[in-house]
Design a binder for these strands. Structure first.
Lengths: 117, 117
DNA sequence: TTTGTAAATAGATGATGGTCGATCTGGAGC
DNA sequence: GCTCCAGATCGACCATCATCTATTTACAAA
């Protein structure tokens, strides 16, 4: 968590030259950093990365029953990963009868994408 | 982990209509997904996100003694976060006398950036 | 209404992660 | 040599996470 430099503990310099001129980094980035870190965290698992990749490449809604056999994981585990992505706002879902369809919320990745660029 | 569709368990369809036409997703993405997930995971913490942000904005090397007071964390904890970023290849470091300087490896973020775009 | 099926949820477990205080390392200066 | 300092590492602690099996929910068809 960032703090104002005035509140930061004073650093005692050794006798030699200082390492560098101090630079002030204001606190503005904290909320943005938390949002982007949350998105990155959700993407920070190979299974979820592949899920998003598959959903993105299809630009439409994909049935869970198509997603589960793509991985060597149990159905509840895939369901869990989809929930993590949904809680992060990265994907959305829709029920149709017995089946559930997932799709990507492209906007949810935009802030991170813009920052990385 | 992706598997070939031939190896995927056969799905028994209910009597009604299937949810959708099956779509084949080849295995090519796995290694890329693992690399990108590793980078995203390293960025998936607000402290590390801010560290990278600060380092990026300076486009030069920044002394650890400047980074520590920006956060309400102990010096070993900041050092730990820098190590996570370095292990992920996102930042590099250089010792100069008593001080250590960190900088961003811009290339390490390029694959993720390109994929997100 | 009974049966079968897709997906979500619950609960347990072992692994990983963030944080701290204490200690270690290695360079600078006396 | 000795001392002081910046930064890294260690060890412990507690929280979070990925995964599984078992169960529940919700819907469809007979």
């Amino acid at each position: 968590m960032m703090v104002d430099l005035e509140l930061a503990p004073k650093q005692k310099r050794p006798a030699g030259e200082p390492c560098c001129e101090p630079v002030v980094y204001p606190d503005i980035e904290r909320a943005q950093a938390e949002r982007m870190a949350a998105a990155a965290k959700a993407l920070g698992d190979p299974i979820r990365m592949q899920l998003v990749d598959v959903l993105r490449k299809h630009a439409g809604k994909v049935c869970v029953c198509e997603l589960v056999p793509l991985f060597d994981l149990s159905q509840p585990t895939v369901s869990h990963h989809l929930k993590v992505l949904r809680d992060a706002g990265i994907v959305g879902s829709e029920r149709r009868g017995l089946w559930a369809y997932y799709y990507v919320h492209a906007e949810a990745l935009e802030e991170l994408s813009a920052w990385l660029k």
